[in-house]
Design a protein around this nucleic acid. Structure first.
Lengths: 139, 139
DNA sequence: ACCACATTGCAACATAGTTGCAAAAAATAA
DNA sequence: TTATTTTTTGCAACTATGTTGCAATGTGGT
């Protein structure tokens, strides 16, 4: 896992620092999306708040993670699949937020449907977030 | 317009106050969605920040307006169509955010498509936000 | 006009995110 | 390996966003 973390950082021409290693590893271990708070809680006092914000922003810029919009006013982040490159995200899948456990999933195999927009509207990006109960809470 | 504002407030058993009248009228005059800031800017020093937050929350609770999620971490609000009732929103349409002018539109005639979710996932609500260039910026 | 109740404004607090800058740590060169 | 350059980090301070308790004010009903 650690080699994969370092490989990813090198591939994106990022210098190898403790915060980047730790935070990227957190994403690789996690099956859901992470909010800033989740990371702060998981790393303890190890890193400054500002460092976490900047690390996340760097990862988004490099196409390593992508943001997930939500109505609760807290941006979540999740790993991008291979198709994402610097400055160009291909996160064309839907996101699922569980109302009960709060986990946010990337449903990579559910594609965002293409829409017929009214005349004059040009789509550049589509975000689709479904909420409800997930496969662990709904048994 | 003013009669319609008062009628709507009465229909929802809300007392008629200056802030409610002014803010609801703002929504009726606006063709796009409004963020808290838009309202604060449009009403000047007339109302306290807290009053605006509480008024918006009241309107959401009553089903007069609905929230629109976004990735820029600022909740937007737009008028609900008639089908919305207290505690039960039917905002089953997509939203469009223009990257150039910043306007958020409710595309009432574009329905959110139904998705086939993986086993165990149950959808309660779907938010779909398309961004790109709108019919005024894209000419 | 009066009374009961709902709403507002204020102060204070809580959370989320940003910016400038000096210190520390990586990467690079010698 | 050490020295130098460049990047990254931590701190402090700040802005934006949103919430809560409470006293003062306004609204609706009699």
């Amino acid at each position: 896992m650690v080699e994969q973390v370092i490989e990813t950082l090198k591939k994106n021409q990022l210098s190898i620092t403790d915060s980047r290693k730790t935070i990227l590893q957190l994403f690789m271990q996690s099956d859901g999306a992470l909010a800033h708070m989740d990371i702060e809680n998981n790393t303890g006092e190890e890193f400054d708040r500002v460092t976490i914000y900047r690390t996340l922003q760097t990862f988004v810029d490099k196409g390593i993670i992508h943001t997930i919009p939500s109505s609760d006013n807290a941006i979540r982040y999740a790993l991008c699949k291979d198709a994402c490159s610097e400055g160009h995200h291909h996160d064309n899948h839907i996101h699922f937020m569980c109302d009960y456990c709060g986990t946010t999933y990337c449903l990579d195999h559910v594609q965002v449907p293409t829409l017929q927009l009214p005349g004059g509207f040009l789509a550049a990006r589509t975000d689709m977030v479904v909420s409800g109960s997930c496969n662990r809470c709904n048994q």
